[in-house]
């Protein structure tokens, strides 16, 4: 097997003596959808926070495209092409959808204080750049069907739409690796269907590799190429969905009793 696109090796992090993530390793091939499942408090989001640089791991390493990105500052990691969404929406609530997505273009833009403050003509560099990136953002708005929310402040949008705006903002960064933290939480079944469709689109058409944390087992089993199950910060098993789904420890961790996951969701 050649070098993995993205891999985590022996990742550990502890908070006040408690091991929140305990020797977790996995690797993701380019273009795959890789899901992490586990009960609440198993340490899934903590792994994401380590990857995106919000937490510093106690030990272990995170390798992205052959480069060690462990412990880099979050904004450095973003410039490497890793974007994420949050479990409890972290949008810029007093900006419009458009502006939120434009912020996603931040790393691709150059306008500084002086050129930003002094654009008074259509032909100026800042205005040109602004227009070019607005065109790109407009494509994402079309892709995610967000036209109606385009100029609304995101704080006033319905929950499901806010989740989409967050997804759109992450896409605006043109990520190579996209971390989705419970994207379907709070959505109704119709919205969930759309979401599955879009995630597939992002994988197939944009060629983005996706790391997914999700509680909806049906969705996980449908779209994932590989699944990692963890509990108490420790990995249980990693493999293709069918295998992980049937693993007795996974069933025990999830349900506390013998029952197939398919029926539970």
């Amino acid at each position: 097997m050649n070098e993995a696109f993205f891999s985590v090796e022996n990742l550990c992090i502890s908070f006040g003596g408690l091991m929140a993530v305990d020797h977790v390793s996995f690797s993701v091939s380019k273009g795959f959808i890789f899901s992490i499942i586990g009960p609440n408090g198993a340490g899934k989001t903590t792994i994401f926070n380590c990857i995106s640089g919000l937490y510093k791991p106690s030990s272990g390493s995170i390798i992205f495209q052959g480069e060690d990105i462990t412990g880099l500052k979050p904004h450095r990691i973003a410039t490497k092409g890793i974007a994420r969404t949050f479990q409890n929406i972290e949008l810029f609530s007093r900006m419009t959808t458009m502006e939120n997505l434009m912020l996603g273009r931040h790393i691709h833009m150059k306008t500084g204080v002086l050129s930003g403050a002094t654009f008074f003509r259509r032909g100026s560099r800042a205005a040109k750049e602004e227009i070019r990136h607005r065109e790109y953002v407009e494509k994402i708005i079309d892709l995610l069907d967000l036209q109606s929310a385009r100029n609304q402040f995101v704080g006033s949008l319905p929950y499901g739409t806010q989740k989409l705006v967050e997804l759109g903002r992450a896409l605006a960064l043109e990520p190579k690796l996209l971390l989705l933290d419970e994207p379907s939480a709070g959505m109704n079944s119709e919205e969930k269907q759309d979401l599955v469709f879009w995630i597939k689109d992002i994988q197939d058409e944009l060629g983005v590799t996706i790391l997914l944390i999700e509680h909806d087992m049906k969705m996980v089993m449908d779209i994932s190429d590989r699944v990692l199950a963890i509990n108490f910060g420790r990995p249980i098993i990693e493999g293709v969905p069918d295998v992980v789904q049937r693993h007795p420890d996974v069933l025990k961790a999830y349900l506390g009793e013998e029952e197939t996951i398919g029926n539970a969701s």
Partner: peptide, 28 residues
């Protein structure tokens, strides 16, 4: 003008959610 372009958006982003701003590549 400043507030309508990249730098201004980064400022507002920090105000509304510094964590999200950081993970979107804004150097806090």
């Amino acid at each position: 003008n400043l507030m309508k372009t990249r730098v201004g958006r980064a400022f507002i982003a920090i105000r509304d959610s510094d964590i999200a701003a950081e993970t979107m590549g804004v150097n806090l």
